[in-house]
Amino acid sequence: MALRSVNLPGVGTKYEFSTDKGDTIALFFTKTGTIQMYTLQGGCHTPSAAEMTPMEARRLGNILTGAIIEAESESVEIAFSAIADLRITIHTYTIKKNIAGKTIEDLQIRTKTGVTVIAVSRKDRNIINPPPSFVFEEGDAVVVIGETDQLKKFEQDVMVD
C-alpha cells in the first residue's frame, strides 16, 4: 500500500492509495474546505464519490480507527501500549425519562457499576466532573469513562432502570 500525495494547484491536496486487493481510494482536501472521498473498485472505470464536511470526515476517521459509533451515543476506546492491558473506554449516552430527576448519588453509579460520569452536556453548556449531587435532566448527554464490562453493567443496571 503506497500512499501518494499531490498538491493540485487551485484544487487542494490529493491522497491516493491502492489496497492489496486492487481497489483504489482517493481523498481530496479541497480549498473550499470540503473533503471528497473516491473509491474505485479494481477493474471498474467509474469511481463513486462522497463529499464530507471536516466534521464528518473526522467522524469517518474515528470509525476507521476502530471506535464504535452508534446512532445516539459514541465511544472511543483508548489502549495504552506502554501499560499492559490497560484499555479505557469513554462512552456517551443520552439521558432518558426513566432516570431524569435523579442525582448521581441516588443512582449509585460508581458503587453499582464502577464507571464514572466525567462530563454532562446540557443544551449549550458543558459541566465537567459533575458533583454527586448533580441532578440529571431528560436529554442530557453524559460522558462516562470505564472498562468495557463496567460500561455494559452501567447500560443494563442504570440506563435501563
Binding site: V6, V11, T32, A49
Partner: peptide, 26 residues
C-alpha cells in the same frame, strides 16, 4: 480556470485521471 476547477469538484470528477490533465492544462 475557475469554471474548470469548480466543475471538477462539484461534479465529483477529481479522481478521474483526466482531472489532473485538465488542471495542468489550465
Amino acid at each position: 480556470t475557475a469554471m474548470a476547477i469548480t466543475s471538477l469538484i462539484e461534479n465529483r470528477k477529481l479522481m478521474l485521471r483526466e482531472a489532473e490533465t485538465v488542471i495542468w492544462l489550465m
